[in-house]
Amino acid sequence: MAYLEFAPALQRHAAAPPVTAPADSLQSLLSTAFAQQPALQSYVLDEQGCVRKHVAVFLNGRLLHDRRRLDVPLAPDDRIYIAQALSGG
């Protein structure tokens, strides 16, 4: 089972409980999360389906750099962490 957790900064705006689900890709895990909390999608992805410019997705603590590719394979017990990137003023 893959595990997905959202940073507190996002939970300030939308309900974003952790998700534990069978998923063979990041796309699949995100789809499960968005099915449970539809409002979350627009906070994480833009309308072209890419990870927002100032959102960071970590796979087992490693930052994923390609915002357009969500077909990243997941192994059982992989952990995804979605946070706000450092930006703004």
Binding site: L10, R52, Q84
Partner: peptide, 8 residues
Amino acid sequence: RMGHFGVK
């Protein structure tokens, strides 16, 4: 215009 999470 949220800095991280887009326009709401």
